[in-house]
């Protein structure tokens, strides 16, 4: 029997939900603040999308090589497409979080113009910036 690959089974099965906080917080500390974290999340999503592409490519190699795998081809293609859609949705939802930060920063800029650099960075993370 195949050795079971290890992954975080508890996390794979656990319900996930945000924590409830009692006040608005926007921690833009230049060392480890939210903008750094947004960047890390963005990078991780890109990495996941790349892995899904590799999976699809690996599987196509098998299907193209051996007729015996054509039975699996449609199923596997469906799974890879579904994962691509999931990854796109995750990316879109991440941008939703960043967009709320952008709106908050735009609002606070009315009294604190030093947040301009944050706005530039948030626009860059959203792919709408010029830098």
């Amino acid at each position: 029997m195949k050795e079971v690959a290890s992954y975080n089974q508890a996390e794979a099965t656990a319900e996930k939900e945000p924590k409830v906080f009692q006040e608005f917080t926007y921690d833009n500390d230049s060392n480890g603040g939210v903008l750094n974290k947004f960047e890390e999340i963005k990078g991780k999503i890109q990495e996941i999308k790349g892995i899904i592409q590799d999976l699809g490519g690996n599987y196509n190699d098998l299907v193209n090589k051996y007729e015996a795998f054509t039975n699996y081809a449609d199923t596997m293609k469906g799974i890879v497409n579904a994962m691509n859609q999931n990854a796109d949705a995750i990316q879109s939802n991440y941008k939703g979080v960043v967009d709320t930060a952008k709106q908050a920063v735009e609002e606070h800029m009315k009294v604190d113009s030093s947040l301009m650099t944050d706005l530039d960075e948030l626009n860059r993370l959203l792919g709408t910036g010029t830098n």
Partner: peptide
């Protein structure tokens, strides 16, 4: 798993009220 961890780390840095 790592993505989930990063999102969890993000929450204390940026969150709304309730």
């Amino acid at each position: 798993s790592k993505l989930y961890d990063k999102i969890k780390e993000c929450e204390p840095l940026y969150h709304g009220n309730g």
